[in-house]
Design a protein around this nucleic acid. Structure first.
Lengths: 354, 354
DNA sequence: ATGAAAGCGCTAACAG
DNA sequence: CTGTTAGCGCTTTCAT
């Protein structure tokens, strides 16, 4: 049975002074023990811990924050969507932050609107966070707030590290490139791309990776289609793609959009992967169980979150110091059933010229 | 361009005393204005606000919390999974909490282990939250912590409201029942059930709803299969189900498990929905775009979160008062392509013996 | 309608 | 190794 015991009405909440009295030491010594500071004899430490335990003492973080000026908490501005990607990133952040001994405060913004992000950051700053992480920032507009703490942009390209702002990406460029190359390797003449909204960094990175892969092979670059990450937008794009008989390979910037594309394609009588290959982006494991199983690239959410928080905590605790070097997470291509060689090899050698 | 302005090195962070000085009032008056307290002339209010704005004043929540004993924040213990359901619930909670004027602190627990939940609650209490929400609690074990603030169990059955603990469910029983009845209405003799892990409340509720629907129609109750919410566990269950030629309808306790079931069924040569109908549980919109589109019931995550937080905030701000009445969210069955009448009517009248 | 004084519970800076 | 003395920045009395 799950049960939560209510506070016993009589006893007042114990303070550190109570612990000190019971342990027979000063308040400062209690403080030392609770903060794992050196210069406390094991004997005293034990007594203090015992007294705290016995009294059911609970540290008051607000008082500590006020006195020390440090909060041991970081705030995150996340996207208020329940999508696999954003949720995975948040889970990764939470774990990394907790492991670092910090508490987590979260504010969602509907759509990454810069004004709202600024408002969220201000609110977090008022709450006294020691650091801020902005998860999956969009590109448009300018977030201007006076931040006296380090700010981490997670999921943005390594572009604007300056002052106390840090950036950690997820290697989207390399992932997009790998996805595109996989298709090219299969023998496709070129690869169409369904991108995310243009105002997102995440979209831009993937477009560029795709473009780089195409350019490296001298492949023709078809016009970019744009979706909004939703399967519905993928479906809409899929209908367009189905109408173009030259399309044999599609790289969608998100798994869900890829699923929408495949659905539209099949509805239009195009087989996947026999007629058209599709690869997604994210790595949601559930899509290994749809028909056809989706080939995709896996985003290293946990690794990126861990690395980002490591940097952020370093910036908080050792300001001025050089940041420890980062290790790029490996590029993971997950080949499943939605990709195959193109229907025939004609397209490779006989370019269509009206 | 996204940019965060670093703090100007020279100026010290302004305090409420600075605002008071600039506005030519006392600190207490500044406090009154900032807290929307009455008995402040409009003229003075305006001046204070202006001074605060001009100085770039930011309230210190830690100091306020220490002085007032209230934090205006609630803590949530969530499941550390990026699944659609848990993520949706968290998004709903965040919004409801923010709308109520509270800040949100999050701690994830890997698997709902009672010990860890207790630890998480303690940690939140130390952080000074005014209320705690435990999202999707499991059933096993006992969470015992001395909580001096109201605790909301979100996603649990309306069972253990007592002391300062509240409970708000998502109407899982009714949803499961609706899913099962949909299948029965289609003409299926009975419905097999793939449940979640037994130690979850969420599982129990759904099993009971399914059981109630069966009983109401006098349908035979087949043994329950158990998965772990993952598509892989659904796939495993699907293989078992495929081997039993008597099954024509399956109700899976989660969309992802349903997807796994369908995959296994089709792999075994059983058509969905022609041979076997499958309905899921959750309402993730992406599964409208797989083949076949998944029939499911939609969980009212937002409504549940909103209602739960409303109750929690009420308990925080008006302790002792009766709680305002709640409105049950409507049951939403989303019929798509994975359900159909059974292959023939034989099964209905000729039970297999031997 | 506004102000003065007194802490909230803890840690910092110094002493010993 | 341990204790003393001052606050941290705000809100609370209680005056006025």
């Amino acid at each position: 049975m799950t049960r939560v015991v209510g506070r016993s009405t009589a006893s007042p909440v114990p303070r550190s002074a109570d612990v000190a009295r019971v342990a027979g030491v000063s308040r400062k010594t209690v403080s030392r023990v609770l903060n794992d500071e050196p210069y406390v004899s094991d004997e005293v430490r034990r007594r203090v811990l015992e007294a705290a335990e016995q009294l059911g003492y609970r540290l008051n973080h607000a008082a500590r924050a006020l006195a020390s000026g440090r909060n041991r908490s970081v705030g995150v501005v996340a996207l208020g969507t329940a999508g696999y990607g954003t949720a995975s990133l948040l889970v990764g952040i939470e774990k990394a932050v907790r492991d670092a001994g910090y508490a987590l405060r979260v504010i969602n913004t509907v759509d990454g609107d810069p004004k709202r992000i600024a408002g969220a950051v201000t609110s977090l700053l008022e709450q006294g966070v020691d650091g801020v992480v902005i998860s999956e920032p969009v590109v448009e507009g300018e977030v201007s707030v006076r931040a006296d703490v380090p700010v981490l942009f997670l999921g943005a390209p390594p572009a604007f590290t300056g002052g106390r702002t840090l950036t950690v990406g997820v290697g989207a460029h390399a992932l997009a490139r790998a996805a595109t190359e996989h298709l090219l390797d299969l023998g496709h003449t070129t690869v169409h791309h369904l991108a995310g909204p243009g105002r997102w960094y995440a979209s831009k990175d993937r477009v560029e990776g795709w473009r780089a892969a195409l350019a490296a092979r001298g492949a023709h670059e078809p016009p970019v289609l744009e979706g909004d990450w939703s399967p519905a937008s993928g479906y809409a794009a899929g209908r367009e793609l189905a109408a173009d008989s030259s399309v044999t390979a599609v790289f969608a910037a998100g798994d869900e959009m890829a699923i929408g594309v495949i659905h539209a394609l099949r509805e239009a009588g195009r087989r996947v992967p026999e007629d058209i290959s599709v690869v997604g982006f994210d790595g949601n494991p559930v899509f290994a169980y749809v028909t056809p199983p989706l080939t995709t690239v896996r985003q290293p959410f946990d690794a990126a979150a861990r690395e980002g928080i490591r940097l952020l905590v370093h910036a908080i605790e050792e300001p001025g110091t050089d940041l420890p070097p980062a290790g790029e997470p490996p590029v993971e291509l997950v080949v499943r059933g939605s990709t195959a060689p193109p229907p025939s090899q004609e397209g490779q050698t006989v370019p269509r010229t009206t």
